[in-house]
Simulated assay, not measured.
Amino acid sequence: MTKTPVPLSILELGRVKQGSDRRAALDEARTMAQHAELLGYRRFWVAEHHNAPTVATAATSLVIAHVAAGTSTIRVGAGGIMLPNHAPYVIAEQFGTLATLFPGRIDLGLGRAPGTDQLTLQALRRDPSAADHFPQDVLELQAFLGPVQPGQRIEAVPGSGTQVPLWILGSSLFGAQLAAQLGLPFGFASHFAPGSLDQALRVYRDGFTPSRQLDRPYAMVGVNVIAAPTDAEARHLATSQQMSFADLVRGMRGLVQPPIDDIDRYWSPVEKAHASQMLACSVVGGPDTVRAGIDALLMRTQADELMVVSDVFDPALRLRSFDIIADVAGLGEASETPARATATSRG
């Protein structure tokens, strides 16, 4: 049986579902992290989104604290913090506090997009041009998390000296170039924007400059995986995610819906084309199909790590999906390579 030779991690959005509520979504995230820890997943990240009724992780650092307090070994972090929405100093304080409370377990992935609409950006009191300063903001944040320098008059407390591992996240060549230039690990958002995946990975690896955090490229690839005992059941469960993406194309902001029997009765051909393009980096099926799909993605990308999204409506069946993924991937059985050890000791 083929075994996935890389770590697997989980991206959590705190999805709010029809018939449930926001508290349940946050508690499900914590339960999912506890389960993932037992299964051998490497990281459990939550993402910053605003003004999205179906996403409960807007206050990302607070959700990380909620999850980390309920676990003991799995790395917990942001996938990511949309840095243009925040002052780097405040993020240094927040993640320095997390690193102080949960030492050696906190990751900080950084994105350049606002993670919301322009009207909400105004409510955040942020200038849309703030994204232009993203590279400088990353360096400023990194400095606040580093050791205090002689003559430094502003210190992040907690924060200074914690050296929380930074990641650059993105879905374009810009993020790949910046991660390479700064010598940071790179996560590509192929779970919803896979178009530039292969080119971005080439740009990152070809341009990588070693840094104090990382001595060689380390690339994480996002992938949707919905696993069930059979291909037919997995395809049925996947309709919840397909409806969510169809709603996104429509500009709708509804809660996650239970799966349906015929997705083609829900979306139009145009909506299907758009949603399917965004979901192109997906593996849906029974154990053999999932194993083959993951292996094919690794062969294609040579990823050092996969960040898995398993958007299943029923919490018990979502847990089962991660069980199947862990089983076919042989989690806990792959030995660390020197490159992986370097990346994960600091990141």
Rank of each mutant, 00 (worst) to 15 (best):
L8H: 04
I10L: 13
R15V: 13
D21V: 00
D21N: 15
D27E: 14
A29Y: 02
M32I: 12
M32S: 15
A33N: 04
H35S: 13
A36L: 09
E37V: 04
L39Q: 10
Y41M: 11
V46D: 01
E48P: 06
N51D: 15
A58P: 03
A59I: 06
T60D: 10
V67R: 01
S72V: 05
T73M: 08
I74F: 09
I74L: 11
R75E: 03
V76G: 03
V76C: 13
G80H: 03
P84N: 05
N85W: 13
H86A: 03
Q94I: 01
Q94C: 03
F95V: 03
F102A: 01
P103V: 02
P103R: 09
G104S: 09
I106H: 02
D107V: 10
A113R: 02
A113S: 14
A113D: 10
P114E: 15
D117R: 08
L121A: 10
Q122S: 13
L124N: 03
D127G: 11
S129F: 10
A131T: 12
H133I: 09
H133D: 15
E140N: 07
F144R: 03
V148Y: 07
G151K: 07
Q152N: 13
Q163Y: 00
V164G: 01
V164M: 02
V164S: 01
P165K: 08
A179V: 09
A189D: 08
H191L: 06
A193H: 07
G195M: 11
S196T: 08
D198H: 00
A200P: 07
A200M: 04
L201M: 10
L201E: 00
Y204R: 04
R205V: 07
F208L: 08
R212F: 12
L214C: 07
L214F: 01
D215C: 01
M220G: 08
V221P: 07
V225F: 05
A227S: 08
A228Y: 11
A234I: 00
F245V: 11
D247T: 00
D247F: 06
L255Y: 10
V256W: 13
I260Y: 01
I263H: 05
I263M: 09
I263V: 13
D264H: 11
Y266I: 05
A273L: 12
A275E: 01
G285I: 03
D288Y: 09
V290M: 08
R291H: 04
A292H: 04
A292R: 04
D295V: 11
A303M: 04
D304K: 01
D304N: 13
D311H: 15
F313W: 14
F313M: 12
P315N: 09
L317F: 08
R318T: 04
I325L: 14
D327W: 00
V328M: 11
V328R: 00
A329P: 05
A329D: 12
L331H: 07
E333Q: 15
A339K: 07
A339C: 12
A339E: 14
T342E: 14
T342A: 15
S345M: 10
R346K: 12
